[in-house]
Amino acid sequence: MSTPNDPFADEAPDTGAMTILPNGAPALPATGSIPVTGPMPTSPQTGHVILPATTGIPIAPAPSTSAHRLARPESPAAAAARANAERPPAPTPQNLRQSDPAKPSALRGANAKRPGKILRVDWPACKAHGLCHELLPEAVGLDEWGFPIVDRESLRGLRLDDAKRAVAACPTLALRLVDAPS
């Protein structure tokens, strides 16, 4: 089952399903432990490595072997993280929420009977044009790839009309105003 060029092939020896099978599986009791009537597996089974080295394994470990990694002084992620640390932090729900926690919940509307509304993004439709952020900077941040971060708390400070305007402005119709989940 192992592929010849798999660097992890020796980690997960193909013991075959049969070697670890209980020979007899008795009826299970209502509570407590599982009794075992048959002899337990005889092959040394010191545990199992997940992500085994069989063919068809969706993991593609080849580019991340230790040798490859250790030869690299700084991984792209480390470099990115280092570069990122020098930039102002990307907007996150956390720091957006700190922007104005005391704003009133105007998005719920003057009419108290109207259900609360929230902005939702149709994520597959969103193509990171960023107009929602331009129109609602206090409630919609952008991540480092330009995709919106909608902050539900800050939405409370929005006027419904402004939110509707942002919805209408989205070039891919990816922003929607929907009833808040009850």
């Binding site: 089952m1 997960a12 193909d14 013991t15 075959g16 399903a17 070697t19 670890i20 099978l21 599986a25 299970l28 009791p29 209502a30 509570t31 407590g32 432990s33 599982i34 089974q45 199992h48 490595v49 997940i50 992500l51 085994p52 069989t54 394994i57």
Partner: peptide, 21 residues
């Protein structure tokens, strides 16, 4: 161990000890 060789499917009553499984 469903993602590797030696996968076992079994049925247990709720409440059995994970270690026993």
């Amino acid at each position: 161990a469903g993602d590797g060789p030696g996968a076992v499917v079994l049925e247990v009553p709720f409440g059995v000890k994970l270690a026993d499984v």
